[in-house]
Simulated scan of single mutants.
Amino acid sequence: MPDSRKNLRYYFEDRPLHGTFFIYRMDNTIVNSAAGDITIHDLSGGGMRFFSRLNLPVTDRVLLTFSFRSLHKNFTLHGYIKRKEKQVDGCMYGVFFPDEVNDQKNDLVRTVHQLNIEHKERQS
């Protein structure tokens, strides 16, 4: 994939994408917590922005696993929370997907690109 498309982002403006997450690892300990619900507001090969009612930490010590479906494809990606913005009924989070723990990143980049193409076609 060309680097220029690596961080192409798709914004779910009208209908956020639903997904789940769980805590996979804290420091070097595998955790496998219960799943929590999220709504994904934007997505790229490098990360995403999601909303949750839960109060999660911003740290590289906690690796989360995110699962969602887009364009008839299931995705399971690991990421670290890098940003947090408190809102009235929860928090908006920014997540980074590190290359070394995600083998689906190329497929995700292609899917984000396809979402943008389909969005442009609907706007025409």
Rank of each mutant, 00 (worst) to 15 (best):
120 K>W: 08
94 G>A: 09
113 H>I: 07
86 K>R: 11
62 V>R: 00
96 F>K: 07
40 I>L: 03
24 Y>T: 05
67 S>E: 08
65 T>V: 14
96 F>T: 07
84 K>H: 06
5 R>I: 12
88 V>Y: 08
18 H>L: 15
21 F>N: 01
40 I>V: 11
92 M>N: 12
110 R>I: 06
12 F>N: 01
43 L>R: 05
78 H>V: 07
77 L>I: 10
15 R>Q: 13
64 L>C: 07
62 V>G: 01
84 K>P: 01
9 R>M: 08
23 I>V: 15
44 S>K: 02
1 M>S: 09
1 M>N: 07
5 R>A: 09
55 N>V: 04
25 R>G: 05
24 Y>F: 14
66 F>C: 06
61 R>H: 11
112 V>Q: 02
113 H>N: 10
12 F>G: 01
16 P>R: 02
94 G>R: 05
119 H>W: 06
70 S>K: 07
45 G>T: 01
24 Y>I: 06
31 V>R: 05
58 V>E: 04
86 K>S: 10
30 I>P: 15
93 Y>A: 00
43 L>I: 11
14 D>A: 14
50 F>I: 05
58 V>R: 05
12 F>S: 02
21 F>Y: 14
7 N>E: 07
36 G>R: 00
19 G>M: 06
84 K>N: 04
71 L>G: 05
97 F>Y: 06
108 L>T: 00
10 Y>W: 02
57 P>F: 03
10 Y>F: 15
48 M>V: 05
5 R>T: 11
4 S>Y: 15
71 L>D: 06
81 I>F: 01
95 V>H: 07
62 V>A: 03
107 D>M: 10
91 C>W: 09
22 F>C: 13
2 P>S: 13
111 T>V: 10
72 H>C: 13
122 R>Q: 13
20 T>D: 15
64 L>A: 04
23 I>H: 02
63 L>H: 01
9 R>H: 08
60 D>E: 14
122 R>A: 14
103 D>V: 11
3 D>C: 07
85 E>H: 12
42 D>F: 04
77 L>S: 06
